[in-house]
Simulated scan of single mutants.
Amino acid sequence: MHRLAPEVKITAAVLCTVAVVLTPREAFGAFAAYLVLIGAVAGLARVGPGWLIRRSAIELPFVLFAVVLPFTGHGPRTQVLGVALSVEGLYAGWNILVKGTLGVLVSLLLAATTTPRELIVGLDRLRCPQILVQIATFMLRYLQVLVDEARRMRVARLARGYDPRFLWQVRAFAAGIGALFLRAFERGERVYLAMLSRGYTGRLPEGRAPKASKTQWTAGLSVVAATAVIAVVS
């Protein structure tokens, strides 16, 4: 899993997610099969369930929305533990919850087995729009630089007696955000001019990472084939 070419893993993740989304919400067995398949892939990649569960908390807002739907939905109602819930709301909440969770797990597996640089290389090989690829590349490359810059500015504020923890101290924080934006803009201009002087033509060099072989495509698409079979049978 970790040695597969990034374009293979990206393609497999997108196609598997599409298959999950196209599955009817009443096909409960199909979603259980998807979960088993994801568990098998996670075991093959040696990604622990605890790691996946902790990072799945990112979908918590959607879970809360799904929980509300049975109470606010219209149409026929059914009794669940003495509470009247909308049947359509139950189906809608289940649909959001199960498909969102499976999609998040697939994305987490992709992130766990692929470095950010490999993701950029994979998107470039899949012929994604170059402007998006370049923006993502620069974001990943200079995000840590901006974080370090913000940390130094915070230390400078503290050294001058500013500690904006309360509402009436927000002026210092707002000024720091503005100064950070100006510094980031100026740094970006200098970096861009330096790139032009070194022959930049709108596309970064790909590097020496090997492209996907037929064996890797077969291995990656086998998971897609299993997912497609489950979706068709459901």
Results as ranks from 00 to 15, higher is better:
D148S: 13
A5F: 09
L60N: 15
Y34P: 07
P49Y: 14
L132Y: 14
W51P: 10
F138A: 05
M195Q: 10
R141W: 00
T114Y: 09
D163C: 06
W51R: 11
R3I: 09
T17Q: 08
W168A: 06
R190F: 00
Q144I: 01
T201D: 02
V67N: 08
V98E: 03
L193K: 13
G50F: 02
L90T: 05
L221S: 15
Q216A: 05
G48D: 00
L146D: 14
L123P: 12
G122M: 08
W51K: 08
R3D: 15
V14D: 03
L81E: 00
Q169N: 10
F65A: 13
L110A: 06
M195W: 01
V121M: 06
Q216I: 03
M1K: 07
L180D: 08
V14N: 01
V21T: 14
G202M: 07
I177C: 07
L132V: 09
R190Y: 01
R151V: 02
E118R: 13
W168Q: 08
V47A: 01
F173D: 14
A228F: 10
S222I: 09
K211V: 10
R203M: 00
F71G: 15
R208T: 07
A231M: 07
F185Q: 05
G178I: 03
R46M: 07
V104K: 11
F166V: 05
Q130I: 04
E149P: 08
Q134M: 05
V232H: 01
Y162I: 02
K211T: 15
T137F: 04
I135Y: 08
V133P: 12
A156S: 14
